[in-house]
Amino acid sequence: MNKEFTKGVFKDNPIFVLLLGLCPALGVSGQVVNALGMSAGVLFVMLGSNIFVSLLKNFIPPKARIPSYIVIIASFVTIVQMVMEAFAPELYGSLGVFVPLIVVNCVILGRAEAFASRNTLKNSVLDALGMSLGFALGLTLIALVREVLGAGTITLFPVGGFEGIIRIPLLHQAPARIFSLSAGALLVMGLLKAFFNWYSESRRNLS
């Protein structure tokens, strides 16, 4: 596997290692379906902005680069807003203000600045794919922990006869509500980050 792709998934995971894009990571992690929707939005915007920034890197004057990147990112976010509002209005409603806030997701600007502006198109695409996969995995993990413990359910998309909600017996009757509150999000994030630290530390000691 290409290292530009794989680095974003574990080694430089945007949420747990780089600590970027935390606001959406916690804000929309109440339900798994919201986390997946947000990840799809981020994937589209990051792919688009990395492609454009990489193609335009020789034309953007260095002094005006940050505003240029922001305009590129904001345009893709506007596309996501329109598409989501038209085809998934329910999801758009529950993500709320966090959809336009993809603009200020530091992962995207960070990758445009640190990677796409000095790498080839192919590597930038791979980087965007890997980073958004890493973001999606981190976000979905937080959402999974919070929803399972906090509500005893896993909410997915309704497909055919399946209504889209998996109820976990016992936990569903008596969930630990704190995890679905805002305090729970911060606690879960802290515990998962500690686990990541412990895991990478023990891996380093082994090798």
């Binding site: 911060l186 606690l187 994030m189 802290g190 500690a194 630290n197």
Partner: peptide
């Protein structure tokens, strides 16, 4: 502070406790 919790994780957990207090 236990080593894996040093820095950021401890900050998040304190933030979580603060959020509880703000409830």
């Amino acid at each position: 502070v236990p080593k894996p919790f040093k820095g950021v994780p401890a900050a998040f957990i304190s933030g979580g406790l603060m959020a509880l207090a703000f409830m």
